[in-house]
Design a protein around this nucleic acid. Structure first.
Length: 885
RNA sequence: GGGCGGUUAGCUCAGUGGUAGAGCACUACGUUGACAUCGUAGGGGUCACUAGUUCGAACCUAGUACCGCCCACCA
């Protein structure tokens, strides 16, 4: 016996464990089947499941479960990312609490500590994923710091280096003074900030009292100024070009250079040049062979290259002091408030400093070329397609990628330096030493680069390294490339683009995935981005606790329409929880009426009754729609199709229509029991990818024995032989008639409990047959006492309903309000006449008739005829009422 | 500055050329032996605006307004 409701709190876990124990998630069990692969975007080892994960994972699991049921050899490859900065941050914070400093532990000690942390607290997210029913192949779980991964990363670095695609260079980088590491362009976040233009006056050499005014948003960088640039065509300053200026506070002599970088329209038209601390100025400096004067240390405090007074100061403290000092000298022309963009580190949240350092770079431009071409040629497709533009835009303007990080947690760069700084890159120290020996002709000590690689350098290998690359494993052979990558747009650049580059470079030009499905971002119910600081974070696990994982899953899928963000709210989940309850109750109905023990080998084509033929056909159509929608990644359509069929068709109509058979325990109920059981199975199957738990539970409980669990059951592929259009026509007519009678009754305030007689007039033979066949259900659902053919005039005080060619009279024992009935019919007539006028007008339009699709014209003609007939009948009914006065 | 997306019922959103839809909310009524986490019925929309293309436009084109996101080295 099914309980009153599904006890998801205890059953979800049991069902999940059952699947897991049975090995249902494991790949490789169908060696003759086509593989279907999805690689899970590896969550950070520090990660906790947020609603974005819940969406991302659910969309993948829907595809995975669906293809598993379609018979594919499914691999959903899970794993975690070591997340360099994020993880180092977490562990350092823990150490802080114990008053331990990272540097006191030493590098190896710290790394050991991180591994310890990983073993204890890492990967909590996987347990959370299990709770939501995600069916990854956990036996193949990977980590980007695994030994195998390390091998892959080393090979990648060495190969790219040897091919000239990785190089070391001294350049301006985005320096994070909090973490004391370089970061890539992508990790810099431009924020709008209220600031000032400080206008400084620089004295012109040899011309007492003459000044050149420059404006800056960063006064502290003036200590590193080496020049002022003016536009070569700017008449105001032409005579100053080549002249000398004195840098106040420092006393350095600087020159005025002509450079098109200076915009005459902006500020004073003269711009100070700080080549060591500004990306633009650096270019200007290169053009004019200017000195780079670095004024900051790694914490962005002023260093010894500035006057003693400022040394050791924080950059923002120095800013205040410098402004004050300039003001005191009378060299502060004015201060002008402005709003401008300031670069911040996305992890640290501190202002990024352009800083001149030696770093490792990947020649992304070269790697991007084939990756662009692959998408242009359609070898990889983005869905929705519009994201291809975003991808192209970035890839075509890509800059060298800084991949070295001054951190401890990560893959250490496999580069060694000789005593003179000569670089030796190899997969291990022995090989590097050999290179050095050859180079020097004698044995000299080499020292390994201290830095580690950007986390994305390794995660870019996720599609192939998880399968064993660079080894030529059978898994790599079988499951690479993957079929679909499901991801949010926020990591197209970070991750998708880089996997494309690596796949094409290292996998013989084979793309890592055929399709990239880019899904929505989940926002709160007001459309705001969720963040911890705003406190508007919706916890998916809380929702799962409250409404069940199934409800959360189908909500997310149903809200995933292409091309828009999702605004999440409890209300939506509640609605789908109700849907689960509805399904449960439908199953209970089946159980109570002995459908559960029915013959499961039922052949739907053996059904004789119209009602059964109809529901079988409708189930086929629904399944076809789900399949079609999923093939197009239209999750919302797929969820809506199964929801609508289950609730709106099966529950609202079919169950109601078959009740009389069951209650009378008629002979025909035998077939109907089998049909109901068959349709329930269809529902469970097509709903399973969305609501795996409750469907599996019902699957197990709705038959004496099942050959397989639902998770491995066969997906219903469309079978046209199961669709009977005649049956559909008859039941559609029946539904129309019942609905119209109900509406008329409600509008005429006929008490719901009142059973009335019905007299039929003008019915053709087909309708007469149908009326006879559907007599019982019609009476039941429309609350009719008896149905008879009208002989003679309709009785006084009857409501009339027109459906098709026939008119149906409901005589009420003299209590109807004739005026109200007249008004009701008049309203209906008015609507019909409006429609007739519109359609007739269209058909009278020569252009329409000559240019529209024949099918459209045919539909219009038919619609017109039907409307006319119905209007005629309605008019008759009205006249009859009028004559009664 | 460049690019992308949005504007449809009170709310959240589907709907990409053929008579405007769903869920929630709202109103009325609840007869029924799966279900009140429910049933039946109902009200509610110049599809942001303007101009085009078309026999026909929520949908295609151009523009306008407002909102959001991404990218960008401008002092």
């Amino acid at each position: 016996m099914l309980e009153k409701t599904f006890d998801f709190t205890t059953r979800e876990k049991e069902i999940y464990d059952h699947w897991d124990d049975s090995g249902a998630f494991k790949c490789g069990q169908r060696p003759n089947a086509d593989p279907f692969t999805i690689i899970l975007p590896p969550p950070n080892v520090t990660g906790n499941l947020h609603i974005g994960h819940a969406l991302n994972h659910t969309l993948q699991d829907v595809l995975i479960r669906w293809h598993r049921m379609r018979g594919r050899d499914v691999l959903w490859q899970p794993g975690m990312d070591h997340a360099g900065i994020a993880t180092q941050m977490v562990v350092e914070r823990q150490l802080d609490e114990g008053n331990i400093r990272r540097h006191d532990m030493g590098r190896q000690g710290f790394i050991d500590r991180v591994w310890e942390w990983k073993e204890e607290s890492g990967g909590m997210i996987f347990n959370q994923m299990r709770r939501l029913g995600q069916s990854c192949d956990w036996s193949r779980q990977k980590f980007t710091m695994d030994d195998g991964f390390a091998t892959a990363v080393l090979k990648k670095f060495v190969d790219l280096y040897n091919d000239g695609l990785i190089f070391r260079a001294k350049r301006l980088v985005n320096w994070d003074p909090h973490f004391c590491t370089a970061i890539s362009d992508l990790e810099v976040e431009q924020r709008e900030v209220n600031g000032n233009y400080w206008h400084f006056k620089y004295p012109v050499g040899g011309e007492e009292g003459r000044f050149l005014t420059v404006a800056t948003t960063r006064p502290e960088t003036m200590l590193g100024d080496v020049a002022v640039a003016v536009h070569p065509d700017d008449d105001r300053y032409k005579d100053l070009i080549g002249k000398t200026l004195t840098l106040p506070l420092v006393g350095r002599k600087m020159i005025v250079v002509a450079d098109e970088h200076a915009d005459p329209e902006k500020g004073s038209g003269a711009v100070k040049i700080t080549p060591a601390h500004d990306f633009d100025d650096h270019q200007v400096g290169k053009r004019h062979d200017l000195e780079n004067i670095n004024i900051f240390d790694e914490h962005a405090r002023l260093n010894d290259n500035v006057p003693a007074k400022y040394r050791g100061m924080d950059r923002f403290e120095a800013r205040k002091l410098i402004v004050a000092d300039m003001d005191a000298l009378g060299l502060l022309d004015k201060v002008e408030p402005t709003v401008h963009m300031v670069p911040y580190g996305d992890r640290s949240g501190v202002v990024i400093e352009p800083w001149l350092t030696d770093q490792w770079y990947v020649d992304a431009e070269t790697l991007a070329k084939p990756a662009i071409e692959a998408v242009e040629k359609g070898k990889t497709k983005f869905v929705p397609k519009t994201w291809e533009k975003t991808y192209f835009e970035w890839m075509r303007n890509i800059e060298p990628w800084c991949v070295s990080r001054q951190l401890w947690w990560g893959h250490q760069i496999p580069a060694w330096y000789g005593p003179d700084g000569e670089i030796f890159v190899a997969e291990n120290e022995t090989d590097a030493q050999k290179l050095a020996d050859v180079h020097y002709g004698e044995i000299k000590e080499i020292v390994r680069d201290e830095d580690v690689l950007d986390t994305w350098f390794s995660s870019a290998l996720w599609p192939n390294a998880t399968l064993g690359w660079p080894e030529k494993t059978p898994e790599l052979e079988r499951y690479y490339k993957s079929d679909v990558l499901v991801t949010g747009f926020d990591i197209i650049f970070f991750w998708v683009a880089r996997m494309m580059m690596d796949g094409l470079y290292f996998m013989d030009g084979e793309v890592p995935f055929e399709t990239v499905y880019v899904h929505a971002l989940v926002r709160d119910e007001n459309g705001a981005k969720m963040s911890k600081s705003k406190g508007n974070v919706i916890d998916p696990l809380e929702l799962a606790d409250k409404y069940g994982a199934d409800a959360l899953r189908i909500t997310l899928a149903a809200m995933e329409a292409q091309g828009r963000d999702i605004k999440m709210s409890d209300k939506r989940v509640e609605g789908y929880r109700n849907f689960g309850t509805k399904l449960w109750n439908a199953a209970k109905f089946c159980e109570m009426n002995d459908c559960f023990s029915s013959d499961r080998d039922f052949n739907p084509q053996s059904a004789n009754q119209t009602i059964n033929k109809w529901i079988i056909g409708e189930a086929e159509k629904a399944a076809a729609l789900v399949t079609k929608s999923l093939e197009a990644f239209r999750y919302n359509d797929a969820a809506a199709a199964v929801y609508q069929f289950t609730w709106g068709t099966f529950c609202d109509w079919y169950i109601e229509l078959i009740k009389p058979q069951f209650f009378d325990n008629a002979e025909e109920a035998k077939e109907t029991r089998k049909t109901a059981a068959w349709v329930m199975d269809m529902i469970l199957k097509m709903l399973h990818p969305f609501m795996p738990f409750v469907t599996e539970e019902l699957w197990q409980n709705s038959a004496d024995k099942r050959e397989t669990d639902l998770i491995l059951a066969t997906w219903p592929e469309y079978d046209a032989n199961n669709v009977d259009e005649n049956a559909a026509n008859e039941i559609n007519w029946l539904i129309q008639l019942i609905s119209d009678i109900r509406t008329a009754r409600a509008e005429m305030n006929v008490p719901a409990a009142a059973k009335v007689n019905m007299l039929v007039s003008g019915a053709d033979d087909i309708t007469k047959e149908a009326l006879k066949a559907q007599n019982d259900v019609l009476c039941r659902l429309a609350r009719l006492e008896d149905i008879a053919t009208l002989a003679g005039d309709p009785p006084r005080g009857a409501i009339s309903v027109v459906v098709g060619e026939a008119t149906y009279y409901l005589p009420l024992s003299g209590v109807i309000d004739i005026e109200a009935e007249k008004a009701r019919l008049a309203k209906s007539l008015e609507k019909l006449e409006k429609e007739i006028a519109s359609v007739a007008g269209r058909l009278a339009n020569e252009n329409f008739v000559s240019k529209a699709h024949p099918q459209v014209i045919e539909d219009n003609k038919q619609g017109l005829e039907e409307a006319k007939a119905k209007a005629e009948k309605t008019k008759e009914a009205l006249q009859r009422l009028a004559s009664m006065n």
